[in-house]
């Protein structure tokens, strides 16, 4: 049960323009999102999945889709993106801040 990390989310703002996103922007957003050591292949798999989902549906994917379609566990997702799905993966993938209680 030690897998529960108390560090939740502590990050700043999202990109406002989805098309402004580039690989360099992603690197910068990653640094803002507590991802140390740069983006790895595992990060890119999630990032491209999230971007593809947004292009198709104009909305970020639910966490269950990310985990199942990218073949990772939730713990692995949190290890890759310490700020979580929204403030981590969505943000680095260049999605705008989602609507709702976020």
């Amino acid at each position: 049960m030690e897998k529960h990390k108390q560090e939740n989310f502590h990050c700043e703002d999202f990109l406002s323009d989805f098309d402004f996103w580039t690989v360099d922007v992603a690197d910068k957003l990653a640094r803002d999102s507590d991802i140390s050591g740069g983006l790895t292949e595992s990060h890119w798999k999630v990032i491209m999945y999230v971007r593809d989902h947004f292009m198709k549906y104009e909305k970020g994917p639910a966490v269950v889709k990310v985990v199942k379609d990218c073949g990772i566990s939730f713990k692995e997702l949190c290890d890759l993106f310490p700020c979580g799905l929204v403030r981590g993966a969505y943000k680095v993938a260049g999605l705008p801040r989602p609507q709702g209680c976020i």
Binding site: M55, K56, Y57, E58, K59, Q99
Partner: peptide, 19 residues
């Protein structure tokens, strides 16, 4: 524009061709 609510359900269940 499909927007949220049923529009969101249409986008998710129907796919991007409708848009």
């Amino acid at each position: 524009k499909l927007g949220s609510g049923f529009g969101n359900a249409i986008a998710l269940r129907g796919g991007p061709s409708i848009r």
